[in-house]
Amino acid sequence: MKNQHHQVYDTIIFDLGAVLIDWNPRYLYNKFFATEAEAAHFLQHVCTADWNEEQDAGRSLQEGTELLITQHPEYEAAIRAFYGRWKEMLAGEISASVEILRTLKNSGRYKLYALTNWSNETFPLALVEFPFLQWFDGLVVSGREKQRKPYHSFYQLLLDRYQVNPDTAVFVDDNLRNVKAAEECGISSIHYLHPDQLKDELAKKNILS
């Protein structure tokens, strides 16, 4: 275990969805279906997280959509809405987290990167929607790279591309699976729950304290 009080960090790597950007398919499907239970069933059994991650890893939206329609023809309209009405899954930025990012940026003490599982076809919409994405020193997007979290090679890609030393980097993600993978790559990590908890965890590492 590293002594956190003597460890100095110079790089913070952020996940985007559910950390800085409030993205959730339920925002769309709670409108689409008559009940929240129907929406939940659809997202658990049809447009699943695993299915969406294949698009994040580079499969085209059209291919992913047509494949599911073949398997679930009765849900065709709902399946087409996943990317057809994708922007309705965005509820804006998580402003308290973005404020933390702003403080880190303004301090001038840290390199800031984003490591995100995101389709390369929808990511350009996010770039337009969220100006704070320009604050990063680099963005590594799974759909562009044709690989994704939690594969170690995806983390290594960021480390290599930007000459980041894993010993002096901190990774922030809401998905425990991705956090564990980063730690296996030697990157100290924070399992994000909410902005106040993130601030506390950073302070424990003498960041923003």
Rank of each mutant, 00 (worst) to 15 (best):
Trp51Lys: 01
Ser189Glu: 01
Ser119Ala: 14
Glu54Leu: 12
Asp22Pro: 11
Ile21Trp: 05
Pro73Glu: 06
Ser189Cys: 02
Leu101Ile: 01
Ile79His: 13
Ala34Asp: 12
Ile190Leu: 03
Gln62Asp: 09
Arg109Ser: 15
Gln44His: 10
Ile187Trp: 09
Thr168Glu: 03
Tyr113Val: 10
Lys2Tyr: 10
Leu139Asn: 08
Tyr110Lys: 07
Leu133Asp: 03
Leu127Gly: 00
Ala181Tyr: 07
Ala126Lys: 04
Val179His: 00
Thr122Asp: 08
Val141Gln: 06
Leu125Pro: 02
Phe42Lys: 04
Tyr155Gly: 05
Phe154Cys: 08
Ala91Arg: 04
Val179Asp: 03
Trp118Lys: 07
Arg26Asn: 09
Pro166Val: 09
Phe136Ala: 01
Lys31Asn: 13
Lys199Phe: 11
Thr35Cys: 10
Ala18His: 05
Arg148Met: 11
Glu129Pro: 00
Glu76Asn: 03
Arg102Tyr: 13
Ala39His: 15
Lys111Thr: 07
Lys87Ile: 14
Pro131His: 07
Met1Arg: 14
Arg148Thr: 12
Ala182Val: 06
Gly143Gln: 08
Ala91Leu: 05
Asn117Val: 12
Ala114Cys: 13
Asp137Arg: 00
Glu74Leu: 08
Glu36Cys: 09
Val172Gln: 05
Leu67Phe: 15
Asn175Cys: 03
Ile12Gln: 00
Ala91Ser: 09
Pro25Ser: 04
Arg161Lys: 13
Ser188Glu: 14
Asn30Asp: 12
Val8Asp: 08
Ile79Gly: 10
Ser142Gln: 03
Lys87Thr: 13
Leu193Met: 11
Glu76Pro: 00
His41Glu: 08
Leu208Met: 15
Asp167Ile: 01
Ala203Tyr: 02
Val179Gln: 05
Tyr29Ile: 04
Pro166Tyr: 09
Phe136Glu: 01
Ile21His: 06
Ala57Pro: 00
Phe132Met: 04
Gln197Arg: 15
Arg59Phe: 07
Ser209Asn: 15
Leu61Asp: 09
Val8His: 14
Thr116Arg: 08
Val8Gln: 14
Trp51His: 12
Gln163Ser: 15
Tyr75Met: 15
Phe132Lys: 00
Thr48Ser: 02
His41Thr: 09
Ser97Asp: 11
Gln44Cys: 06
Phe154Ile: 09
Gln44Val: 01
Thr48Asp: 03
Ala49Ile: 15
Glu184Ile: 07
Leu157Ala: 10
Trp86Glu: 13
Asp196Leu: 11
Ala37His: 13
Phe33Glu: 06
Leu208Val: 11
Ser209Met: 11
Asp56His: 11
Tyr151Gln: 04
